[in-house]
Design a protein around this nucleic acid. Structure first.
Length: 889
DNA sequence: GAGCACTGC
């Protein structure tokens, strides 16, 4: 663990220092521009006029330009190389480090101001640069009419814009927003508005129509919707089915069918290694069905993702010629598409775990297949630890994994045999940089442009770490391309990340127009969750954001960290799905070999385990320290979870599950939220509390805050905070207001609220409402008595309390540490004396997110076992910051 | 004045 941290730090340090060094060694502006920026973008392809008499001349010039460009690119490479060399000198590293330490604090403020100032002039500078570029590059050349006009126009624009860039920006963005709003207005039906529907449909469609050879056959749902005459329908069905059977036989796994079945017969646990495209996910369950395993019970196949479970089930149903939900079905949260007839059941791994809570021996299954086990989700790790196979000698367990982890799984399951067969994949050429990159964003952009200029057509996929980075990259790329106009091929930029509105997500699936190239700027979402056709080049800077949890402080953090080798391989593989491809890694082979971890740290080792422990306890597992985790989590994390559950009254002193604990375990929520719900029964406000619980569990993506509309968005948000009711009540107000408008999408837009998150909250709320019945809690509402709602919250979250300090910061009550109210909180200016918070996150400071005021005496009333008088003594005579300590209560 | 990667129940 220590080793790993050190490594990560060195890796990051190296890059930071590089940055510092760049600043110090920065060449003069024009110098920098000439070598670094201009030439790459500049050249490429000049517009060829129709005029035939000029064509020869054009060709010569084209050739000359191409040569120039090649030279520019070479210059650039050397330039970059030298820069990095300099950056890496030891002395400079130390110097940069020292300086960073000395004035990290004051420099933050300064840099903010600088940033604002810079932003103001950025656009202007860009334009000026463009003009200079043109003059520099094309001064001695005969420009075409159009190009001259363009140039003059730019110059005029620059002069004009100098005076009023800011205004223009606003007008432009105002327009864009209006268009977006209009588009939403145009869509009326709820189906259309379902943010998931679109791309989930797309993914399902993919599974349906993709043939093994990569070609597409159209047969989806033609015979299901009854649109065709009966005969045509039958005929279509027949040929479609026949064709599908052909396809099945052409899959790589087909040749191993008998061997595989024999291996399953002979061994209880089998590790299966088959590359993507081998057909294992769709075929193995069918083989097992054909071999008669389904006579003894269901065949269950788990997937890490909902879409995968749905789309694979749809595909298999089609191959078997049955209706989805009958013999073949799927089960995911909020959606159970199975029936009594179902023998092949695809499901999310979390779903199987939930089923296990009700049916601990999985009696209704004869085979369980855990697919994509190498992803090591929390659920698969727990499933493995439970070792169901030991109690059910007749249950077959198949684990499918990527090559490199197969041994590990085999060892874990008492040297279970490994069955491997080849997949279908195209070769991917891997390129490393010769020296470390100082700025991976810049390097990524240069690489994209270089590919665009040098390499044959084929789309590019760039892995970045988050929304902000993607937006920046998009901006820079657009701007660099814009200046070139017709001189290069068209480059279509497609951003993709989970929070992107779905109608914009759909853009990445549109086929690239003839002669153009698409560049997809993606987060990790493109690593596993979705596949994009036509990707031939992958640019991998080697970083991703990863959440980690500190069990000692209970603090979460989301940090940019180097990826693992396994991740790097996965990313590279994305280039070789439809043809041979290339992967550009923006780190050195040495970095790869020495600095990157073999595998990503499994989730179980970097998460809060409270709900896991509660689930295991409810399965009757008492000795958690010796639970057979494949990679055990830190003991501290387990202890912390046990302590919390004890404090919440879910476990007794002996560590046994209490009645309250049993009820809490029914809810698919963090135990503190479950506790809050269980207690709400007593305060007769379960209706309000489940809304709050649902809103809290969708996470922080409720309020929409576009860059250009921050003031409006903040105003809209503050409406829900009137009376300083606290963030929890504000969330409740958001939910009930939305409900009052009959779940209106329009209302969401008007109030800067994310529809997608609200719909998710509604789904969760519905589920929670259903579960209330199971734990015998009646729905009761007590909106007039907000203190009872607050008391329920405190009853669940009493370990998360903090008290205001003299300096305006807070100190957590039980395990003292200094924290602050998150600036996005409605109480960030109010500073109540006592607060309860939902979570603690470490970003630039230790922040409490979702905060509500409480009365200290409640702590004694609601958690007498946890707090003593002295903890909540309130020295009112002490001077508090001005205007603080007075909120709604 | 901050900044939510990605899943899942």
């Amino acid at each position: 663990m220590l080793m790993q941290q050190t490594k990560q730090q060195t890796y990051t340090l190296l890059i930071d220092d590089g940055d510092e060094a760049v600043k110090e060694k920065k060449p003069s502006k024009s110098d920098n521009k000439r070598k670094g920026k201009v030439p790459v973008v500049r050249e490429v392809r000049r517009k060829v006029d129709d005029d035939a008499s000029e064509s020869e001349e054009e060709r010569v010039r084209d050739q000359k330009e191409r040569q120039e460009l090649e030279q520019h690119l070479r210059d650039l490479d050397t330039f970059r190389y030298h820069l990095t060399e300099q950056k890496l000198s030891k002395k400079e590293q130390e110097e940069a480090l020292r300086r960073a330490k000395d004035d990290s604090h004051s420099s933050r403020k300064v840099s903010r101001q600088e940033y604002l100032k810079k932003r103001e002039h950025k656009k202007l500078e860009e334009l000026r640069d463009e003009i200079e570029d043109e003059q520099y590059l094309f001064s001695g050349e005969n420009l075409t009419e159009t190009e001259l006009r363009e140039f003059r126009y730019k110059k005029e624009l620059y002069d004009l814009a100098k005076k009023r860039t800011e205004d223009e920006d606003n007008v432009e963005e105002e327009k864009r927003f209006a268009v977006a709003v209009q588009r939403y207005k145009d869509l009326d039906s709820r189906e259309k508005m379902d943010p998931f529907a679109e791309w989930e449909d797309h993914q399902i469609g993919l599974a349906r129509v993709r043939k093994s050879d990569g070609s597409v056959c159209r047969l989806e749902s033609q015979y299901e919707d009854g649109m065709h005459p009966k005969e045509a329908q039958d005929a279509a069905e027949k040929t479609a089915l026949e064709e599908l059977q052909e396809v099945r036989k052409s899959l790589p796994i087909y040749g191993y069918r008998e061997q595989l079945l024999q291996a399953v017969e002979e061994h209880q646990v089998l590790v299966i290694v088959g590359d993507t495209g081998s057909g294992k996910t769709t075929q193995i369950p069918q083989y097992l069905h054909e071999a008669g395993y389904t006579k003894r019970g269901k065949v269950g196949c788990t997937q890490p993702r909902r879409v995968a479970a749905m789309s694979v089930a749809a595909r298999v149903a089609q191959e078997m010629g049955v209706k989805l939900g009958h013999e073949v079905g799927y089960s995911i949260r909020f959606e159970d598409c199975t029936s009594d007839k179902t023998v092949l059941k695809y499901m999310t791994d979390g779903m199987l775990l939930r089923e296990l809570l009700g049916e601990p021996d999985l009696a209704s299954y004869s085979v369980v297949i855990v697919d994509e086990a190498h992803e090591r989700t929390l659920s698969t790790d727990i499933l493995f630890g439970l070792d169901i196979a030991r109690f059910r000698p007749d249950l077959k367990l198949l684990i499918s994994s990527a090559t490199m982890d197969a041994e590990k799984f085999s060892d874990y399951f008492d040297t279970a045999p490994i069955f491997s067969f080849p997949g279908r994949r195209y070769p991917v050429e891997i390129n490393f940089t010769s020296a470390p990159e100082a700025d991976y964003m810049d390097a990524a952009i240069v690489t994209v442009l270089t590919i665009h200029v040098r390499e044959p057509l084929g789309d590019i996929l760039v892995f970045l770490t988050g929304q902000e980075e993607i937006e920046t990259a998009e901006e820079i790329l657009k701007q660099r391309i814009r200046g070139l106009g017709t001189k290069i091929r068209e480059l279509i930029i497609c951003p993709i990340y989970a929070n992107l509105p779905s109608e914009l997500q759909a853009k990445i699936f549109e086929p690239t127009p003839e002669g153009a190239r698409k560049v997809v700027l993606a987060t990790n979402i493109a690593e596993t969750s979705l596949t994009i056709d036509g990707i031939k080049y992958v640019v991998d800077p080697g970083f991703s954001k990863m959440k980690s949890y500190n069990p000692r402080t209970g603090m979460e953090s989301l940090l940019i960290t180097p990826i693992s080798k396994a991740s790097a391989t996965q990313r590279a593989g994305r280039a070789g799905r439809t043809s041979a491809g290339k992967c550009y890694r923006l780190y050195t082979a040495f970095n790869y070999n020495n600095d990157l971890e073999e595998n990503t740290v499994p989730e179980v080792q970097r998460t809060n385990l409270a709900s896991v422990v509660l689930a295991l306890k409810s399965l009757g597992i008492h000795d958690l320290i010796n639970f057979d985790f494949m990679d055990p989590p830190p003991a501290e994390a387990l202890v912390k979870a046990l302590e919390l559950l004890f404090a919440l009254g879910a476990l007794n002193k002996l560590g046994e599950l209490t009645k309250a604990g049993r009820r809490m375990a029914e809810f698919p929520l963090d135990p503190m939220l479950s506790k809050m719900i269980v207690v709400s029964d007593k305060y007769k406000c379960s209706d309000e509390i489940i809304s709050i619980a649902a809103m809290l569990s969708v996470g922080g993506s409720i309020f929409y805050r576009p860059k250009d509309k921050q003031v409006h968005a903040d105003n809209a948000r503050m409406n829900f905070h009137t009376g300083n009711v606290g963030d929890h009540i504000a969330l409740l107000k958001v939910y009930s207001s939305w409900k009052e408008t009959n779940y209106s999408t329009q209302w969401c837009y008007e109030n800067y609220i994310q529809v997608r998150s609200m719909k998710r909250a509604r789904d969760i709320r519905d589920q929670l409402e259903g579960l209330l019945e199971r734990v015998e809690i009646e729905i009761s509402s007590n909106m007039n008595e907000l203190d009872s709602v607050r008391k329920s919250i405190v009853a669940g979250f009493f370990p998360h309390t903090a008290k205001l300090q003299k300096n305006g910061s807070y100190r957590t009550v039980k395990h003292p540490q200094t924290v602050h109210i998150h600036p996005n909180s409605g109480l960030s200016q109010v500073l109540p004396r006592w607060v309860v918070y939902h979570e603690l996150v470490l970003t630039s400071k230790e922040y409490m997110r979702q905060v509500t005021e409480l009365k200290p005496e409640w702590l004694i009333e609601l958690a007498p076992h946890y707090y003593q008088r002295k903890d909540v003594e309130d020295d009112a005579s002490k001077k508090m910051p001005k205007g603080a300590g007075k909120a709604a209560i």
